[in-house]
Design a protein around this nucleic acid. Structure first.
Lengths: 335, 335
DNA sequence: GCAGCATTTGCACACGCTTGCAAAAGCGGA
DNA sequence: TCCGCTTTTGCAAGCGTGTGCAAATGCTGC
């Protein structure tokens, strides 16, 4: 670690023959500098390889330009897509993403938020888990804005972005009925995430309105393997369902593979399937899955705009409920 | 933006009835503080909700604790898996990840590195693209360590981690020959990434040693759709190949789907296929793809340990060549 | 040349922290 | 009680930047 390596504004000022304030102002948009000095400064800066020290600037301005992204299971198709979109939009908004990978253990999110505070992040976006109330308060008290995505929480302050899962569930029932299905089922994991549970309960409720019971099966963590196992359990029942709504596309992919290769069922002729998320694999020929598209870009846009130009006018974030479009492919009869 | 929100070490010191230095030392591992004062300080800090300002600390220590991760196509299965592993390992090493999403345009990586410099990142890890030599020099001159993953570059300074692609290609040829295949092909994209080209050239070279020509087809960007199109082109040729090595698992998945559903070919009976990366989907029942596993954890471990405890002893990073294991599944005869 | 004004410049302080250095405190033995 | 020693503590100088304020400069119209 060789010391004294970075060139500072002082050195630039000396080389350009101006004061250090002039250098500072040159790199501060909207500050008052004459065109002549600005040119001298930029020339000297270029030559010396000067770069504003954002640590120092953040210290002064009390605004680091950092936004903290907190998520688990980032290698998952849906998560990584959302992450991609968020970082992209943050970048165009001139923010910098600090990324924290949480596990599913308690306190993991809290630790992440503490890190965000230590680095004086301007805001944090939480995709997984739920922070302790006290930590939330701490963040808000420190002027840090908070966004919760797909986390059902009712404390005021953070912006909460959710999908209308119940509404989506209702549309699945209609689709299944239109396809002539009568034995409905819901495939879920044991994760118990708010959005997962909302889909399950919405589906059951709407089915009941039509006088139908729903077979529910849950297993393990929300992934491909769990989907296969849920399928094995459901399809060995005495009365096997003819339409299943999977809480997630990953579950659906596993379910389809088991249904086809272990039970030799033909989709959608003998079994209709609907997923959720519209991950890339849902469009692959082997699956061609009818599913709900998460409005990833809208989610990201809403989050970022609220964070960035959110001022006094919206101190408390409202609760946003977004609509998920049903993408018709080949896993349900009569699209 | 309500001002004066964060509690500073001064306030903690006042509340605890000690000097500011005592507070600072309490939060500096290895500093000299008596047990009595430490307790007083931590109590006061807890009560006030004090958190060390890393911006200020980084400014003093000239070491921010930030590591910059630079990558494009992050929603891709392989990339997201590598990213996950890297952030995970960086976290246990006590570093913080700053994530920059690049596109495939020129200068995108350079901009990312400039950002890393502005935030005084301790190091940068580059997964995509290649920075301009001048920028590399700038980073190194500023004491910033650099890791290049799967980028073929020969400038000294950065640590370069690569796979032994040629060796892997050789093992594919052997596998195909053992399966009795005679018409070999290589499916690639037009991305021209060093690792992609190394696989292609290695495959061709080894095949030639066995007196075999290789049909090569390239199309578009390295993804599922490109795999389908490459398959359509290859399988409509007068003499259709009976064994194809796909540069990437995504290409292989697309290739398999086209081969099965558009050409009604049976894998591996009529067509053997090998991929590269061992993404999660390769293990799905619909594909069951024989492929090379990227040693993601080893890559991440090597990168992080070199970054973290890399001291004067290894000022210049060496070039690491890692081995990729072949994972036998069902897409090649006679595993 | 000079008053009157708008624009630009430099000074100096602040931001929150670490750390070298010297003074203070603790401690055991005579 | 005092001495020599080790441990702990406080002081103050920095780290690189932004910005209010007053002085300086430039420009326009006499």
């Amino acid at each position: 670690m060789s010391d004294k390596v970075f060139v500072s504004a002082d050195e630039v000022a000396r080389k350009a023959g101006v004061s250090r304030s002039a250098v500072s102002r040159t790199f501060t948009p909207g500050a008052s500098v004459s065109e002549a000095t600005r040119r001298k400064v930029t020339a000297a800066a270029e030559e010396l390889g000067y770069h504003v020290n954002q640590l120092a600037r953040g210290l002064m301005r009390n605004e680091s330009g950092i936004v903290c992204l907190i998520a688990s299971d980032v290698a998952t198709p849906y998560r990584s897509a959302l992450l991609r979109e968020l970082t992209l939009q943050l970048q165009v908004a001139g923010k910098v993403t600090m990324f924290v990978n949480t596990d599913r253990s308690d306190g993991s999110v809290d630790r992440a938020l503490h890190q965000a505070i230590r680095y004086r992040a301007d805001a944090s976006i939480i995709l997984s888990g739920l922070p302790d109330k006290s930590i939330t308060q701490l963040c808000l008290r420190n002027g840090q804005r908070l966004v919760l995505i797909n986390r059902d929480d009712d404390q005021p302050g953070p912006l909460r972005i959710n999908l209308d899962d119940r509404d989506a569930a209702g549309r699945v029932v209609s689709a299944f009925l239109r396809a002539g299905c009568t034995r409905l089922a819901f495939a879920n994991s044991e994760a118990g995430t708010p959005s997962l549970m909302a889909r399950e309960q919405g589906f059951i409720a709407v089915a009941k309105e039509h006088g139908l019971d729903v077979i529910v099966e849950r297993y393990g963590w929300t992934g491909y393997e769990a989907g296969k196992i849920v399928a094995q359990r459901m399809l060995t029942r005495k009365e096997r369902p003819d339409a299943v709504f999977c809480a997630t596309d990953l579950l659906a992919c596993g379910f389809m593979d088991a249904a086809r290769h272990q039970f030799s069922l033909s989709i959608p002729d003998q079994l209709c399937i609907v997923g959720f998320d519209d991950i890339e694999q849902a469009s692959w020929t082997s699956y061609h899955l009818t599913t709900f598209a998460q409005p990833v870009d809208t989610i990201a846009r809403e989050a970022v705009t609220w964070l960035v130009d959110g001022r006094k006018d919206t101190p408390d974030g409202q609760s946003l409920k977004l609509h998920a479009d049903l993408v018709w492919r080949g896993s349900v009869r009569g699209g």
